[in-house]
């Protein structure tokens, strides 16, 4: 069955943005990464899997344009084309919002698969914004993924939850279950990085986090007022005024597309740490 699907839809790459823990910056990162990919000219769609807690469309600044949603498409009440919202800033970017009134039980594996297969025909990148937790919504968001971006804050509970999610990516996805040659490629995106707090011992160091998670580092996003400001005005941070955070996201997006970009920490980089990180990413 798997090979058949591969033959039918060879195009788009499905990337899930997940974390386990809530409030670490999944939706912000999903918005920034999808906008960044679109900015590079890749046809990109971002799907909100957080059924019942519609947030992505607000961060993308299109909440007033939502007519049909992901659940309508899954249940056959609307066509995919009707539900997709084209971004006004980037014509390569589309948003598939979710329902505010339904819950995660409205998602079915067959329905999600059908929508993703249809999107694969048209888009280069399909970004799935996972809900927090490890229940049905999160599992369906990751199930069909080719790659995963695990958003983690440098603190113990977030790292623990990310570790749990990495375990699920290695066991509860289609690639894992079908014994595919390549497992889901998982990378960690460290958000809310604050060198000052790390130096004071209030946060874990990048090395500590990577040592526990044992997966490649996609990027380090500094704690920044720019992120909050961009969310409030409904602009993906990457499209907002230049800031350390938007530069860090742009670097992460470039790495996601396979470019080799030097790892830099936006807030007061220290030579020692800098060197070690570079050694890791190489």
């Amino acid at each position: 069955m798997t090979t058949q699907i591969k033959e039918e839809a060879p195009l788009g790459k499905i990337i899930v943005i997940t974390s386990g823990k809530g409030g670490v910056g999944k939706t912000t990162s999903a918005a920034a990464i999808s906008a960044g990919l679109a900015k590079l000219g890749h046809k990109t769609v971002v799907i909100d899997f957080d059924v019942g807690l519609r947030n992505l469309d607000m961060i993308m600044g299109c909440e007033r344009r939502v007519v049909f949603d992901f659940i309508n498409v899954i249940q056959g009440d609307a066509k995919l084309k009707q539900a997709l919202i084209k971004d006004k800033r980037l014509d390569t970017l589309s948003i598939l919002p979710t329902s505010q009134t339904r819950d995660k039980d409205a998602l079915t594996q067959e329905g999600v698969e059908a929508v993703l297969n249809e999107l694969k025909q048209e888009f280069d990148y399909i970004i799935c914004d996972s809900p927090a937790g490890i229940e049905r919504g999160a599992q369906l968001a990751m199930y069909f993924a080719d790659e995963a971006v695990v958003v983690t804050n440098p603190e113990v509970s977030s790292v623990r939850d990310s570790d749990r999610v990495l375990g699920l990516l290695a066991s509860k996805t289609r690639r894992a279950e079908s014994g595919a040659a390549e497992p889901v490629k998982a990378q960690v995106l460290l958000t809310r990085h604050d060198q000052g707090r790390i130096d004071r011992g209030e946060m874990m160091t990048v090395e500590d986090v990577l040592e526990i998670l044992a997966v490649p580092l996609l990027g380090i996003i500094p704690e920044s007022q720019a992120v909050l400001r961009a969310s409030n005005v409904g602009t993906p941070v990457i499209l907002d005024d230049p800031s350390n955070a938007s530069r860090a996201y742009a670097d992460a997006v470039a790495r996601l597309t396979g470019e080799d970009v030097e790892m830099r920490v936006g807030d007061e980089p220290k030579p020692g740490l800098f060197q070690r990180l570079f050694g890791r990413s190489a």
Partner: peptide, 8 residues
């Protein structure tokens, strides 16, 4: 041969 994750 893989790391054993939290919850496994």
């Amino acid at each position: 041969t893989q790391p054993i994750r939290s919850g496994q």
